[in-house]
Amino acid sequence: MDGRGRFFYLASWMGMALALGLQVRRFPPQGLEVLLYGLFILLALWALSRGPKLAPRWLLHPVGAYLLFEMVRVGDSWPLVGFFSPALYLLAGLAYPPWSLGYLLGAFWGGVLVLAPLLLGRNLDFWPHFAVSQVLLVGLTFLLARFRELHGQIRFWREQALTDPLTGLPNRRALEMAMEREAARVERGEETFALILLDLDDFKRVNDTQGHQEGDRLLKEVAQYLVAHVRQGDLVGRWGGEEFAVLLPQTKGEEAAQVAERLRAGLARLGVTGSFGVAVYQGDLQDLFQKADGALYLAKSAGKDRVERGF
């Protein structure tokens, strides 16, 4: 949970405590009602201890029962319950997946609250407004659930489209988008950036002699090493097959070549050799790709396990 999420989570609990305080002050509990209030507070604190993910599920039924209890005990002031009934639908929406049976529990408690004034013989002057508001709240909550579901699907497919499933690194499309952003920054006057292309030497032989499972393990190991040995602002991605790319923002040619040489030496100590091509952005992304790829090809043809420059 990020900072804003924690803020609103704590605000909701503070709001619950304040609402209880206001209710007790306006309608002081008597006799057994004090015990019921204490029980509800204990249940709320226990739910709080379960954490943000489980608390809504444990709170849904106690909140529904509490609102019904308040509707019974405050007599003709029962419409005050309407201010807090939206909590039922939101708790159900947070506690259960959209469109599940559990998700309908909020609507169930809303129906109980709508029928209660009729069964209890309360003053019904405000009942039509209360009943219609509950229908609106249920409908809005289901719309919210639908948008939440669609947002989750879009986020899932976006992450899938930009992530290499084997290594977990950004894929080629993600790297290209990142380079487009860096190019835009350079056009605004910021320092240029560099691209390193890395191709593992003789990787096909690993697959042929030791199997694809060992090849996959090696790719993951290389990916982890690269991520751990670049700066925090640098971006490591899988370019394709046994080829990786490292995007170095605000980096000139000599510094990029030094980074590539350091990575080459580090991989060699792990028992893995690779050929590196380094290029620097000079106003044309296509030119950057071609120079880095040309330098990589030169490193391969010159004996592998080396760094060549395309600048």
Rank of each mutant, 00 (worst) to 15 (best):
L59W: 03
E221Y: 09
K53V: 15
L298K: 14
L175R: 06
L197W: 02
H129W: 15
W13I: 01
R158C: 02
L285A: 09
V24T: 08
V114D: 01
L80K: 03
A17Q: 10
P86Y: 05
E261V: 08
V112A: 11
G277K: 04
A184Y: 09
F311E: 12
L115F: 13
Y96N: 01
F289L: 13
G3R: 15
G303A: 08
L36I: 11
E159Y: 07
G237N: 05
R262L: 11
L166S: 06
F130Y: 13
D216I: 11
G102C: 08
L175N: 02
R4V: 14
P117D: 09
Y297G: 00
V114G: 00
E254L: 14
S100K: 08
E190I: 11
F244W: 07
M14G: 12
Q258A: 14
R264M: 06
R181W: 14
A295P: 06
T163D: 03
A228L: 10
G110I: 05
M71Y: 04
T167V: 10
G38Y: 08
D234Q: 11
S133Q: 13
F69I: 01
A228I: 07
G240A: 07
L200H: 02
R269I: 11
M177A: 15
A295G: 04
P62N: 08
L270P: 00
L94G: 01
Q30N: 11
D2C: 12
E182N: 07
R26E: 01
A44Y: 04
M177Y: 15
E261C: 02
Y297E: 04
D202H: 15
F311Y: 13
G51S: 09
A256D: 06
V74H: 01
G168T: 05
L219M: 08
